[in-house]
């Protein structure tokens, strides 16, 4: 319980840090922190495989990619003045977010929002069990995921190559 509260507060703090950092590199680092905390929460939720994937894919791959692009483009901070028409949009966005949170809060604190869990005991969530599930029940979506990644790879390559050709 205490652990959850600590982790939750630090996760929110990291997220807010990402949101309000002026420097994009800082944002990325706050995001890594956030991902790591969420990975820890996964561990407490008895999901070790997902926690590891979170660390390797998100923190390891995705954030590295972000940092790489930020530094490649030198886009730590935006140059030039801010765009117009931001004020009412900010207020609208803030208002909507507030509405969203209030909605969730009202549901959660009504008490009967979520039916109590059935007597589902602790299940086997080991990577082996998850792997079996993936390759048995979800083998077709898994393969489709592979195709999706392939498409992403080809897309990225095409995007960066075609530009060079256009320049020639």
């Amino acid at each position: 319980m205490v652990l959850f509260i600590i982790l939750a507060i630090s996760a929110v703090a990291a997220a807010l840090g990402m949101l309000f950092s002026r420097n994009a590199v800082h944002s990325a680092l706050f995001l890594v922190l956030n991902f790591a905390i969420v990975a820890a929460l996964y561990l407490t939720l008895n999901a070790p495989f997902i926690a590891m994937v979170q660390i390797t894919v998100y923190a390891g791959a995705i954030i590295v990619l972000f940092l790489f692009v930020i530094m490649l483009l030198g886009a730590e901070q935006l140059r030039g003045v801010a765009g117009d028409g931001g004020v009412w949009q900010r207020w609208l966005a803030g208002g909507l977010t507030a509405v969203l949170l209030i909605s969730f809060a009202s549901i959660l604190f009504q008490g009967n929002a979520i039916t109590p869990a059935s007597a589902a005991g602790v299940i086997d969530t080991s990577p082996a069990a998850l792997g079996l599930r993936l390759f048995e029940a979800y083998v077709f979506p898994f393969e489709v995921t592979g195709v999706l990644l392939l498409a992403a790879i080809i897309g990225v390559v095409v995007l960066s190559i075609s530009k060079k050709r256009g320049q020639q």
């Binding site: 949009q89 609208l92 966005a93 909507l96």
Partner: peptide, 11 residues
């Protein structure tokens, strides 16, 4: 923003 508005309203 429009998408978000729609989402919140639907929710």
């Amino acid at each position: 923003l429009s998408v978000f508005l729609g989402t919140v309203v639907l929710l």
